[in-house]
Write a protein that binds this DNA or RNA. Structure first.
Lengths: 242, 242
DNA sequence: AGCAAACATTGACCGGGATCAAATGGCGGC
DNA sequence: GCCGCCATTTGATCCCGGTCAATGTTTGCT
């Protein structure tokens, strides 16, 4: 149910949303966005908070407004693999499906715009432009995921870590802040712990640490603090990435 | 342009297509299917023949009518990773994209129904039911792919091979032939060489061979010939898969 | 049938990354 | 500032799976 009169400065309304033009809602008109707004609500997650659990009923889907979240699965004995990372404007959850295929957990503080999965499904089926956006996003995500399989299956530790750093430098570009969009960063703050990096790359924390130390020793990167990375020699890093 | 009067026994026409009810065309009506038929054509591939090359312009998309194909990427120095396997009724190619993200090669003799990517894109955008089918398929494929990342990143050789055999026994079920659909097979013929299995699992051919030999020695499976597999103790195999 | 080439198995050895363990460092709370 | 906790680094050792090499087995061709 739409609120009688949403204030123009109502932060919960889509109009004020920072990802309005980048998320899957981008192509919707005023009327459609109002309808979508009426079934969604904003939710704040703190770092480490889990939004969805693998195997549970697929109750909700969401858009990421800001923050970084991980998608993960694991084996019975506790080994964990991060199978995806989602950033502002990305979509979360499994529309048109009965169960959630992997856990979703916030790595940083994050804001998401959540919908009941069933209501979202119905809305999506009635709005082909939305479904089209979702399709394009899903196809792109599938491409990215498959590319990552080459890393997991065939690259060694050095190549994995170098690829990871290059990838981060390209993805952590603040979309609004940087006018030369597309330019990779030479310094950035990792939103991940060493363990999380290990879980993305299919390595152990020790191997990640040792290779970071080596990259630093060789002058390829600098590590001013635990989570800060400066890329000193991008060409070398790219060569290492294979 | 539709041919003046397609014969009812014209094998090239969608009506006669064996995957008519399972591929993404399933929800199209007579008129729509005729329009789609007019922009597609059937093509036969022999084993080992490559249909699409990684990095080239995305010129075509296709439906698989029968046969098995692999999707693959590799590193500059020749290491290869199979990032997907496609069977009858699956969709191939990258709609709404400029370049083909990975190579597509037939593993067995195969028949595919190919479309110009641009013509397909246009048709899809005009037919939301088709786009919806494609979306559901892509979402399912993404789930499957992410599940495979756990195998590549965190499982050891024994777990990888056991998982692979379980997966094959579930996927190689002939859709029409078996009335109890969903029942996994206890014996089947692998459409892959040892090298291809290695490239799916991120292992070497020797490790695959040694583990097959061990599984056989332990009485979990039997290998009557190079490509035939009998599962003798499914429970044990599932336990090994982790 | 006989041959060659491709494919697969088996063996010996090695090394990269995992594992186990200990030391170090950074950060929040008081 | 000091303390305690936890993340990270560093070190020592081990072992799984890769590499190299030789042998065995299909398969297809003439």
């Amino acid at each position: 149910m739409t609120k009688p009169a949403a204030s123009p400065i109502d932060k919960s309304f889509c109009q004020a949303c920072t990802v309005r033009k980048r998320a899957i809602c981008a192509d919707l008109d005023e009327q459609e966005i109002a309808a979508l707004n009426s079934i969604g609500r904003q939710r704040k997650l703190s770092a480490g908070e889990q939004l969805l659990w693998e195997g549970e009923d697929a109750v909700l889907v969401a858009n990421v407004i800001d923050g970084v979240l991980k998608l993960w699965t694991g084996t019975a004995d506790g080994r964990q693999q991060i199978v995806g990372l989602v950033y502002a404007s990305d979509f979360i959850g499994r529309p048109f499906g009965a169960t959630t295929p992997y856990g979703v957990e916030a790595l940083s503080e994050a804001n998401v715009c959540v919908f009941s999965r069933k209501e979202f499904d119905t809305f999506a089926r009635e709005h082909p432009r939305l479904e089209h956006k979702l399709l394009e996003r899903t196809l792109a995500e599938l491409d990215r995921t498959r590319k990552w399989m080459l890393l997991l299956g065939r690259k060694n530790a050095e190549e994995k870590l170098a690829t990871f750093l290059i990838d981060m430098s390209e993805r952590l570009v603040e979309p609004g802040s940087n006018p030369l969009s597309g330019e990779p960063l030479t310094q950035f703050e990792l939103p991940f712990s060493r363990q999380q990096i290990a879980d993305v790359l299919g390595l152990t924390i020790e191997t990640v640490s040792r290779n970071f130390a080596r990259f630093k020793r060789e002058g390829v990167i600098d590590l001013p603090s635990r989570r800060e990375v400066h890329i000193l020699d991008r060409a070398a890093l790219e060569a290492m990435a294979g």
